[in-house]
Design a protein around this nucleic acid. Structure first.
Length: 406
DNA sequence: TATGCCGGGCC
DNA sequence: GGCCCGGCATA
């Protein structure tokens, strides 16, 4: 995950946020250093640089420690000055709780934590930056566009200006040269629940601001919050590992009502377009109504068994109709052999079925996907081999059990 | 290894 | 169509 900050953004943000709660120590150190060198004019300039760099550092850490931040464009003189001053700044910042990596060898320090196995693509050129972006962008010619576009979705810890980057987030990660992983890869996002919006931001403040500005129309009163926005957004947790790797759509644990369609890898890269489709009510769950489940039952010829008292189930005969409720969970996929509660990634079973059928009998017209094995106890297990006569007919015939349907 | 059940054969 | 079983996939 690489964040790229344009210098303009940084400066603007720096000027905007003069009080940082996260790094008071760094600020104090900075102020102290400034006081001691007040008489010296050269050092005064250096102080200015230090301050700017300090602000840059703080801004980058606000973004979070898992983000690549390529160096901002500066002139060569400024760079040289930065090299000197940044070392001091980093020394003072090394006590920050968010930055534990030794500032002397920043690339190693960070690459181990969230860029494991990623070969450094650049000669480290002695650039002071503690963050890994020097790996990503050529230090001599800092070219943020690629990395900036690639990792824009995660840039938004900066609360404002979120409408723009979401619009641009559609063209992301075309070629990932270096897979970036984080150990602790759960990322909390905030999703706007406003109808037909589905905007996803990284911070609660950002989403609140978005709701205030866009939906509640409180553009002017940006800081005023009566808590009403809380009703219009929800918190979701994203597994950024699956996001960054773009592998099988492992559904990350989502805390609330976020639809399961959201964290699909492509969606994670282009959060805005996919988030727009979130409110669509068509989910795998909705496709598997219990009525469908029982209709499927009636298709089998094996179910001509008489009604039997089923242990562990509520069986309520009621004239011609009856209601059954047993341990089979309501979330049961009959049409699509993919269960969201299945341990392994969603779709892997189906893919494996496809692969199996393709390999074994490609020209088959009717591809019959083997149903995932039911987890509930079947007649064989319940009654045992000795009571085989108590099995349902299907079980006796080694067919899919019709009594304990999963 | 035990279990679930698909595919197919036999009557 | 009813019945049975070989054999494979999966837990």
């Amino acid at each position: 995950m690489t964040f790229t900050f344009q210098p303009e953004d940084l400066r603007r943000e720096s000027s905007k946020k003069t009080s940082h709660h996260l790094f008071p120590l760094a600020m104090e150190e900075d102020v102290k250093a400034a006081d001691t060198r007040k008489a010296n004019r050269i050092l005064d300039q250096e102080k200015e640089n230090t301050r700017s760099i300090c602000l840059l550092e703080q801004k980058r850490k606000v973004v979070s420690s898992n983000i690549d931040v390529p160096p901002a464009r500066k002139s060569s003189e400024e760079l040289d000055m930065d090299k000197v001053t940044a070392a001091m700044v980093l020394t003072s910042l090394s006590t920050s709780p968010l930055v534990r990596s030794p500032p002397v060898r920043p690339n190693e320090g960070l690459s181990g934590s969230w860029k494991e196995g990623a070969p450094s693509s650049s000669s480290s050129s002695g650039y002071w930056s503690w963050s890994a972006p020097s790996d990503q962008s050529n230090p001599s010619t800092p070219s943020p566009p690629l990395s900036a576009d690639s990792f824009k979705p995660f840039r938004s810890p900066a609360p404002p200006d979120d409408g723009i980057d979401e619009a641009e987030a559609s063209n992301l990660l075309f070629d990932e040269p270096i897979p970036r992983k984080r150990k602790n890869s759960m990322k909390v996002m905030f999703k706007c629940l406003w109808k037909n919006c589905g905007k996803v931001l990284n911070t609660a403040a950002g989403i609140q601001k978005h709701i205030r500005a866009i939906h509640l129309g409180r553009v002017g009163e940006s800081d005023y919050s009566d808590g009403e926005e809380d009703f219009y957004y929800t918190e979701i947790k994203l597994n950024t590992d699956s996001m960054s790797e773009g592998l099988a759509p492992v559904s990350p644990s989502q805390s609330l009502t976020s639809p399961p369609t959201f964290p699909v890898p492509d969606c994670s890269r282009t959060e805005a377009p996919c988030a727009k489709t979130d409110p669509k009510p068509m989910t795998p769950l909705s496709r598997s109504a219990p009525t469908t489940l029982y209709l499927v039952r009636t298709d089998h010829a094996y179910q001509a068994t008489p009604p039997v008292t089923i242990p562990g189930s509520k069986f309520t005969p009621n004239g011609s109709s009856f209601s059954i409720s047993w341990q089979s969970p309501p979330v049961t996929f009959t049409g699509i052999p993919v269960s969201p509660t299945h341990p392994h990634p969603v779709g892997s079973g189906e893919q494996r079925q496809h692969a199996h059928t393709v390999l074994s009998s490609p020209p088959r017209g009717t591809v019959s996907l083997r149903k995932p094995r039911g987890e509930g106890k079947k007649c064989r297990k319940v009654y045992g081999m000795e009571n085989r006569d108590m099995w349902c007919t299907a079980c006796r015939w080694k067919k899919a059990c019709q009594r304990f349907i999963d």
